[in-house]
């Protein structure tokens, strides 16, 4: 009954290609390319999160930078407190900082999820254009909060002295850090695929295609969508904490509307709703940025033109061009 999807070999190719870049970089002694590949993996992870809401659920969130930034600030703030040994809070219980990724990740994921739960519960009462604008507005709210709250750098952002640690692995080595990010990306893709094919994923996709039909069989769209929105935010938040560690720097730009827009672009460039769409999109995007950015500092002009071309003429994104239409079981 299970047929091989046309895109499956392409997916393996993409996953292999991404893994190959840093290895080749090592061989060529060009460590910069490892950073480039890490950037691809992290942005892909953030976009896999968005793809859950946007691709499967049809929820056009223009505010996912909020979760990306929350993840980033979680890593930044916890590690700052770990390095200056001042507690994060003293009341009602004393909580200190941490530079352990295994602590930072769950905190980033939970915080992103909680914020998504509150903003999602309000935004999902609406739909369509309202939803787009409201998610954008909530992200902007958090952006302005970050710029006006001086304790963690305000507009200037926050530097992380050292990359946070992972037990038993030296994260300061670029290849090690890449492999951590890559492993998390693969795990997220696996989770995405399971969710897509599950009962929950079926209901979520049905909510996008025809919410009246979903309700008529007795499934309320709202809780399904809210759960998807929260899950989606959690993945993007995790990516944000990695992004902070990659740059060893967090700033409000991670929370900006441009970031939200870029995350959508990653999903669309690759192919909306497809498992590896975000991976293809992130690889393309970082590559554009790198190649076009090498030619001209106005590379975003060309990005804009390419994007416009994709929207107007190549709606399935890269995977749509390579593998044809999405097929469901």
């Amino acid at each position: 009954m299970k047929r091989m999807r046309a895109e499956t070999p392409i997916n393996f190719l993409l996953a292999g290609l991404l893994l190959l870049v840093p290895l080749a970089a090592l061989a060529l002694e060009e460590p910069f390319y490892i950073t480039l590949a890490t950037r691809m993996a992290i942005l892909a992870l953030a976009a896999v999160g968005l793809n859950l809401a946007l691709g499967l659920g049809g929820l056009v969130s223009f505010g996912h930078a909020a979760f990306f930034g929350i993840g980033g600030y979680t890593a930044g703030i916890l590690s700052t407190h770990a390095s200056n040994a001042q507690p994060l809070m003293t009341w009602p219980i004393e909580i200190g900082g941490s530079d352990n990724m295994l602590v930072i990740w769950p905190v980033a994921v939970v915080l992103s999820g909680l914020v998504a739960l509150v903003t999602g519960a309000i935004s999902l009462r609406t739909s369509g254009v309202y939803f787009i604008m409201i998610t954008l507005a909530f992200a902007q709210m958090i952006y302005y909060f970050a710029t006006s709250w001086p304790a963690y750098g305000g507009e200037d952002g926050l530097s992380l002295g050292l990359r946070n640690a992972f037990p038993g692995i030296n994260t300061a080595l670029p290849l090690n850090f890449f492999l951590i990010c890559y492993a998390l990306l693969i795990a997220a893709l696996y989770l995405f695929a399971r969710i897509r094919d599950s009962r929950f994923g079926t209901a979520l996709q049905a909510a996008r295609q025809n919410q009246v039909r979903l309700a008529a069989v007795g499934i309320s769209p709202f809780p399904i969508r809210l759960a998807a929105f929260v899950l989606s935010a959690m993945m993007t938040g995790l990516a944000g904490s990695l992004f902070a560690d990659l740059n060893r720097f967090v700033s409000p730009s991670m929370l900006s509307w441009q970031m939200s827009g870029e995350l959508i672009v990653l999903v669309i460039l690759g192919g909306t709703g497809r498992l590896f769409g975000p991976v293809a999109g992130a690889m393309l995007f970082v590559l554009f940025e790198f190649i076009l950015g090498g030619f001209t500092e106005r590379w975003q002009l060309f990005l804009g033109l390419i994007l416009l071309g994709v929207v107007l003429f190549a709606r399935g994104g890269l995977l749509g061009l390579l593998a044809g239409k999405v097929r469901h079981g």
Binding site: D197, S198, Q205, A206, Q209, V217, H328
Partner: peptide, 29 residues
Amino acid sequence: APEFSALRNVMLAVQSQQGSSFHAFRPVM
């Protein structure tokens, strides 16, 4: 649900009939 097969359209109703739609891990097909 236009993108789903006829079978998966009916399965949506079956899963609703069986109870929770919050199982996120087992492939329906």
